[in-house]
Amino acid sequence: MKKLPRIYKPLIAACTAMATMLAAPAVSAQTDYPNKPVSLVVPFAPGGSTDIFGRLIAQHYFKDKGANAIVENVPGAGGNIGAARVARAAPDGHTLEIGAMSTHAMNGSLYTSLNFGPMEDFVPIAMLAQAINVIAVKPSFPAQTFQELIEYVRAHPGEVNYSSGGIGTHNHLTLALLEERAGLEMVHIPYKGGGPAVTALLQGEVDMFAGGASLLLRHAEPGNVRLIAVTESTPSELVPGVPSASDIVPDFVVTNWYGVFGPKGMDPELVKAINAEINRIVALPDVAERLSGMGMVPNPVSPEKLAEILDQDHQLWSKTIESLDISNH
């Protein structure tokens, strides 16, 4: 092969430099992010757990870069309206969803007429925290332990009832799954929201409720409800002395978590950068303390691990929803 004339060497060097310059925006885009206000879309009404998460994140989000993060509440249809807005956004990281596992792992099976894919149209970015899920009974309920609860319900089919925040909510599906896995028969009484469902338990209108520790801890301390089991695979320090339901029903494990999602097509490097920032924020002492008071446990994971967790939950709930023939629309 002939050597190139010396005159071509500066030209080759110039072309190489140009190629480097053309490739640079992909890197500088990460360096410059965020370069405009970031919209943190909360697909639920103000005041709930996702809203609190959104405002905690907004306070700290890339503040070293002078970022301006704004929480936007876009409630409706079990989180679907807000989620759809994020799915249609540009994948540049400036529109993100502060969402829940239920919005993505459950809603695709619960709502049959969605114009977006809760699983397909998003990239999981970061887990905010895992919510400790507790099964509670009214103080006068005969069973004192989860083992006794199972035995009592089996001995009284169709006589024990439970409340939920509505058909297809996490409260409902948790105990519907318990019925299926433990061979029980109970009566489901849906209410319009988790608050009214807990009130029904406090007033003795229903026997049982399954929900976040944040909803139940303050009522358990004065003895207005009795916490009988957590639905995670292991007990939690947030509810000391309360065993895991899986000790009695091994194939019954239910988790609930909150996370950050973006529209599909986001640059993987940008996803990693946002993941690192979210993990940094939830580890801040004041944020961690606030989460603990909400019955939440920080659980920082990589985007890849979060995608794996989401897929497992989606498989569980899509099969459960189909087998129970539950649908909202």
Rank of each mutant, 00 (worst) to 15 (best):
W257Y: 15
Y258N: 15
Y258M: 14
G259V: 03
G259T: 12
V260A: 10
V260C: 10
V260F: 08
F261C: 13
F261E: 14
F261R: 15
G262W: 04
G262P: 11
P263S: 12
K264S: 14
K264N: 14
K264H: 14
G265K: 04
G265W: 05
G265N: 06
D267N: 14
P268W: 02
P268C: 01
P268G: 01
E269W: 09
L270C: 01
L270Y: 02
L270T: 01
L270A: 00
V271A: 03
K272W: 00
K272V: 05
K272A: 10
A273E: 11
A273V: 11
A273K: 13
A273I: 10
A273H: 04
I274W: 01
I274M: 11
I274F: 01
N275E: 04
N275Y: 01
A276R: 07
A276T: 11
A276M: 10
A276G: 02
E277N: 02
E277G: 01
E277I: 04
E277P: 05
E277Y: 06
E277K: 01
I278W: 04
I278F: 08
I278T: 06
I278G: 03
I278Y: 06
I278D: 05
I278V: 14
N279E: 07
N279G: 06
N279I: 01
R280T: 02
R280L: 03
R280A: 08
R280C: 05
R280W: 02
R280I: 00
R280V: 02
I281L: 05
I281Q: 02
I281R: 01
I281M: 05
I281V: 08
I281A: 02
V282E: 05
A283E: 13
A283K: 10
A283M: 10
L284G: 04
L284R: 10
L284N: 03
P285F: 10
P285D: 04
P285T: 03
P285M: 10
D286A: 11
V287Q: 02
V287R: 02
V287Y: 04
A288D: 11
E289F: 09
E289T: 15
E289K: 14
E289W: 06
R290I: 09
R290T: 15
R290W: 00
R290E: 09
L291K: 00
L291N: 00
L291Y: 10
S292A: 15
S292P: 00
S292N: 14
G293F: 04
M294R: 11
M294D: 07
M294K: 11
M294T: 02
M294G: 08
M294Q: 15
G295Q: 08
G295C: 03
G295E: 06
M296V: 00
M296S: 11
M296P: 04
M296L: 14
M296T: 01
V297A: 10
V297K: 13
P298E: 03
P298Q: 08
P298I: 03
P298R: 08
P298V: 05
P300D: 13
P300N: 11
P300F: 09
P300Q: 09
P300I: 12
P300Y: 05
P300E: 12
P300K: 08
P300C: 12
P300A: 14
V301P: 09
V301Y: 11
V301T: 13
V301G: 11
V301D: 08
V301M: 15
S302T: 14
S302V: 07
S302I: 04
S302R: 12
S302E: 10
P303C: 09
P303E: 07
P303I: 09
E304W: 02
E304A: 12
E304S: 07
E304R: 02
